[in-house]
């Protein structure tokens, strides 16, 4: 088995609003191994993006890590050390964002923005950086690269821009690529192309991926393993096939049920009743208890532990003990 690349251990992140602390991520523990493609899925407000921002050290000012730690390639990242982050961000961990249209500087030619990334982190000359940028642009499937290099972002389509973002993210050959809903702002055909590109890049460069999405369908396309999050907790963590065929947590099951498919054609789409409890309304007990069809007594009072089954399939639910359904 490949070595552990990213290890998050018992991480708590809380927002401070008006002097009061509201936990947003709780007891977050997971690992990403080298070259692995891991997905994080969940509804809006479950802490998916906050997880990625924690890894990047880019938490908003009102949020802070209150417990636990993050280590990358064996090195612990502490929130305080600026220099550490500068050498990590972009060099070891790169990130691509939801909306490529706003993630590029409108007043700088796109090629130059890619080259700038190499200039920041690698000991290269301007000329070499440009050459690297052009090569990278070709690798992500762009044509007419010489001409594109000098174009401004408003002249490009969304798909081209997301390819540019991927080229920029991978130019320094980072060990980990965080993709925060990279296809949400794109239309469906482009979405499929970008997903295929990400898979291909993972294969050819060996960059591990942490892929964040609210769409299990997209995760299924790209990832090997999926982490399901709900209200700041990891509720299930297993290989993709395992989760699709045998979802354990009622929340995962509900997410799968809500996925449209050809077989369900003509039927009304399933929706999970209720909504994710906002930060200010989260209490004890299982985070999903309020919306869970199978909730019983202790679900409302005691938060279940993240239970690891024999096969490494982790689930946070009172219905399971050592990976087996009971009751």
């Amino acid at each position: 088995m490949a070595n552990t690349l990213l290890a998050i251990d018992e991480l708590d992140v809380a927002f401070t609003i008006g002097g009061k602390q509201y936990p947003a991520l709780r007891q977050l523990s997971f690992e990403v191994r080298e070259k692995e493609r891991v997905g994080i899925v969940g509804e809006s407000g479950c802490g998916k993006s906050l997880t990625s921002l924690s890894v990047m050290g880019l938490l908003p000012e009102s949020a802070a890590i209150t417990r636990g730690q993050i280590s990358l390639a064996g090195k612990t990242l502490s929130a305080g050390l600026r220099e550490e982050w500068h050498s990590t961000r972009g060099r070891q961990v790169a990130m691509i964002f939801q909306d490529p249209m706003t993630a590029l500087n409108p007043l700088m030619p796109v090629g130059k923005q890619i080259a700038e990334m190499a200039l920041t982190h690698l000991a290269v000359t301007r000329k070499e950086a440009k050459q690297m940028a052009l090569e990278m642009m070709a690798k992500v499937g762009l044509s007419r690269i010489e001409q594109l290099y000098g174009e401004y972002p408003h002249r490009l389509s969304g798909g081209m821009m997301q390819r540019m973002m991927i080229a920029m993210a991978l130019i320094c050959q980072p060990k980990l690529l965080i993709a925060d809903e990279p296809t949400t702002a794109l239309d469906v055909t482009i979405q499929a192309q970008i997903l295929a590109l990400l898979r291909e890049m993972n294969r050819s460069t060996g960059t591990a991926m942490l892929f964040i999405s609210h769409d299990l369908g997209v995760i299924r396309e790209v990832c090997e393993r999926v982490i399901v999050m709900y209200a700041g907790f990891i509720v299930e963590d297993a290989p993709v096939q395992d989760i699709l065929e045998n979802p354990k947590h009622p929340y995962t099951a509900a997410l799968l049920q809500a996925l449209p498919s050809v077989e369900k054609r003509g039927q009304a789409l399933y929706t999970i009743p209720g909504r994710v409890p906002p930060l200010t309304e989260r209490g004890g007990g299982c985070p999903f208890a309020g919306r869970c069809p199978r909730a019983f007594g202790i679900c409302h009072t005691i938060t279940p532990e993240l239970d690891t089954g024999m096969d490494g399939h982790r689930v946070r639910c009172h219905l399971y003990v050592e990976g087996r359904l009971c009751g």
């Binding site: 990047m56 880019l58 982050w85 500068h86 050498s87 990590t88 961000r89 972009g90 060099r91 790169a94 990130m95 964002f97 909306d99 706003t102 993630a103 590029l104 500087n105 409108p106 007043l107 700088m108 700038e116 990334m117 920041t120 982190h121 973002m165 920029m168 993210a169």
Partner: peptide
């Protein structure tokens, strides 16, 4: 703005972000 945050995420220094990304805009 997202592109400023993106620049930060790729490890650009504050000076560079200010002079190359914010000022021209």
């Amino acid at each position: 703005f997202a592109f400023v945050k993106a620049a930060k995420a790729r490890g650009a220094s504050s000076l560079r972000i200010i002079s190359r990304h914010i000022l021209p805009n």
